[in-house]
Design a protein around this nucleic acid. Structure first.
Lengths: 217, 217
DNA sequence: AATTATTATTAGGCTAACCTAATAATATTT
DNA sequence: AAATATTATTAGGTTAGCCTAATAATAATT
């Protein structure tokens, strides 16, 4: 059984390893959790001793099978509670995350499964992120680039093909991240650019190059 | 803002002060929480510094207004979550407490109130204990002795009039405590004894003296 | 009242999870 | 490649919340 803090580290490593390479740097974890790098090293050693991750000096951290399983359960609980808060308690899209950060650590056999059932086995949380099933399996959805989506269709950002700082910075600027919901409004034949609706609020036009760099589902 | 541990201590002091006198002994708290008396003293000093309780050497602890308010909010959250677990997730009467022990510490402005609303403003938890309202007010219910209740009526134990060890021990033996649900089956004219259903499971007969020592609502 | 039992308190330690500041290793620029 | 910047690591420290063992105070019993 892991502590809250251990769970938070495992979850962070999990999320960061999806975004970029498999090995996650100390700094990335420190930034994600708002902790000091020295604290991160302490914890990485501890998680290594517990066989939840692999980590050797300078090399960055990587989840082992057991650590991955734990991370997926934390993510599952987090996202299920987010659905609960949004659907049942009428919290907004923006507020649910903070509360779910606390709720995700409540552990009791069957609790997540009962909540899941009660909510009707939702597949995505209010941010569009997929919810792992009871076995920790994340539905592997069909992935296409944004450029392949037809006008009128709504999709969810699942990954980036291009990990250049330029591209990632631009994404950040547009407030687009994993889970962001995009609706294709119009495709311009002339240059392949696309007009999109971001999270049902902002409307922007993005280039063909941009659309080919973003994986959606 | 209090830590989980501080909240647990305040809640324990609150509950213990209802059961017996106002001043709660170190040992009683230690027993209730399963902690060492030395640890309890540590915490009592801390809570005193924070103006949540009054406590001087040897004298026992007592909640101050602020501490009482915190305790009542913890109790409120605990009991609301119990209702949620029972009503929505189909947990049994017996299982809810353990999970609610964790959930009661989730703090976020409005969370308890939204949960309350969602559950339809329940007045009692699955154990029959009253739920404090948003302001921390516990409904003061009409209190009678068990001997004054008519056959066929179901009531809830709210207090004991007699606090002798003999009586309390006997209650424990019968598995009757604050919150226990009793249904009066029959009153025997001959000696004033009463046949009761305890928590809808065991049926027992209790004496007139017994019935006059138990407060119910 | 004296003895014994119970309860309360202090002193000193431990672990988890964080920190700062100094140093080492790796990357990036010039 | 040398200089500089960034990232990683170590050493040592702090706080919360618990512990044990010794001692003091209070209560109960003879």
């Amino acid at each position: 059984m892991q502590t809250h803090s251990e769970e938070n580290y495992l979850k962070s490593i999990f999320k960061l390893s999806r975004l970029k390479s498999k090995k996650v740097s100390v700094k990335a974890i420190a930034d994600a959790l708002g902790n000091n790098p020295a604290s991160v090293i302490d914890m990485l050693k501890k998680l290594t001793d517990k066989n939840l991750i692999t980590y050797e000096k300078t090399s960055g951290a990587q989840l082992m099978a057991t650590g991955l399983a734990v991370a997926l359960q934390v993510v599952r609980r987090h996202r299920l509670w987010e659905v609960f808060l949004k659907e049942k308690l009428d919290y907004s899209w923006a507020e649910v995350h903070e509360i779910a950060e606390q709720l995700e650590h409540i552990k009791h056999s069957e609790l997540a499964n009962r909540l899941d059932k009660y909510l009707g086995f939702p597949e995505f949380d209010p941010h569009g992120d997929p919810i792992p099933d009871a076995k920790g399996k994340l539905k592997d959805t069909l992935r296409l680039t944004l450029s392949e989506i037809a006008p009128g269709i709504t999709c969810r950002v699942v990954a980036v093909k291009n990990t250049s700082t330029d591209f990632l910075g631009y994404l950040q600027q547009l407030d687009i991240g994993i889970g962001t919901i995009l609706t294709i409004i119009e495709k311009i034949k002339f240059d392949g650019s696309i007009k999109i609706h971001i999270n049902n609020s902002v409307i922007t036009s993005v280039s063909k190059k941009f659309a080919e760099s973003l994986m959606v589902a």
